[in-house]
């Protein structure tokens, strides 16, 4: 990951893709915890969520080599039958709640979001900047923060409105052509949470959203990200800051990046002879002074 990031800095950036459309995602898994059934269906897909994880002693008795291959998940046929060619559009669960005006809406804007890879982090950060930071953030860190909100440190009452995994087309506007062409595809995991919200001084009672979008098949990180995103939104929703770590934007964003954290943590293995020598001298001097004072007192 570090190598890829470092290599990327050698490449000129010649453009940005069009925002990917996750409603057109070719999904391999898509579940909702808020509705038992819904258009597009519950597509369980590749997961260990519903299988037993019991040790099978029969295998050991038969002397089978450890580490037998995991069961290959059976491919899930596309709910619309087709699969492949024309990707069926699977509507987002949030749009069903939206129909009733039960969930907050975020008007689409033309503003170019800030780019964390090109500009330094600016605090207080806008939501796009926060989301970028969380997407790049360390999974373990985001997970623990999200878990802390579930246990009362800045609780946001999250339901998984929808979790989907699949590939989306990445398109780019080519100025010479005047339209967008597909330049590749990427696997993403997207999570949208519906959060209980009883209103505040500035906002009416309605469901609010947390959002997570991460690369690859990484459900845990996508869910965790959406919980932390929601916790960080206390200011714009007029909620109280209860002092929870997950609400503290500066704390979260400045410590989420694994590459930065690993590098700085491990650098203490490097030589620090000079600094330590000066510390050593200081401690010796202070001790000598303290001893002298003690003797004088006696």
């Amino acid at each position: 990951m570090f190598l890829i990031r470092a290599y990327r800095t050698t490449l000129p950036r010649f453009g940005a893709s069009v925002p990917v459309d996750t409603a057109k995602m070719a999904v391999s898994r898509r579940v909702s915890a808020t509705f038992k059934d819904l258009p597009g269906g519950q597509i369980l897909g590749p997961t260990f969520d519903y299988t037993h994880r019991l040790l099978d002693f029969a295998l050991m008795a038969e002397g089978e080599a450890a580490g037998s291959p995991p069961p290959t998940p059976t491919p899930i046929p596309s709910p619309q039958g087709g699969g492949g060619a024309a990707t069926p559009q699977i509507p987002h669960v949030m749009s069903f709640l939206n129909r009733d005006g039960l969930i907050e809406t975020d008007a689409a804007g033309d503003a170019t979001p800030p780019d964390l890879t090109r500009e330094p982090m600016e605090l207080p950060a806008s939501r796009p900047l926060r989301l970028q930071s969380l997407t790049r953030g360390d999974e373990g860190f985001i997970l623990s923060l999200a878990y802390s909100t579930q246990r009362g440190y800045g609780r946001t009452h999250a339901f998984v409105g929808e979790l989907r995994i699949g590939t989306v087309a990445v398109e780019m506007d080519i100025p010479e052509l005047g339209f967008a062409v597909e330049i590749g595809e990427v696997e993403l995991t997207e999570c949208e949470t519906v959060n209980q919200f009883t209103g505040s001084k500035t906002e009416p009672p309605q469901f609010t959203r947390g959002y997570g979008l991460v690369f690859g098949q990484t459900e845990r990180k996508a869910i965790a990200m959406s919980l932390v995103d929601r916790a960080l939104r206390w200011r714009e929703l007029g909620e109280d800051f209860v002092g929870a770590p997950a609400q503290d934007e500066e704390f979260v964003l400045m410590h989420a990046d694994n590459v930065q954290a690993t590098g700085f943590l491990e650098h203490i293995k490097l030589p620090h002879y000079v600094d330590f020598q000066s510390e050593l001298e200081l401690i010796r001097r202070l001790r000598a002074e303290a001893m002298a004072q003690k003797e004088a007192a006696e």
Partner: peptide, 10 residues
């Protein structure tokens, strides 16, 4: 009761 969404027309 559970609410089940049956189509995307509400």
């Amino acid at each position: 009761l559970d609410e089940v969404i049956t189509d995307d027309e509400g």
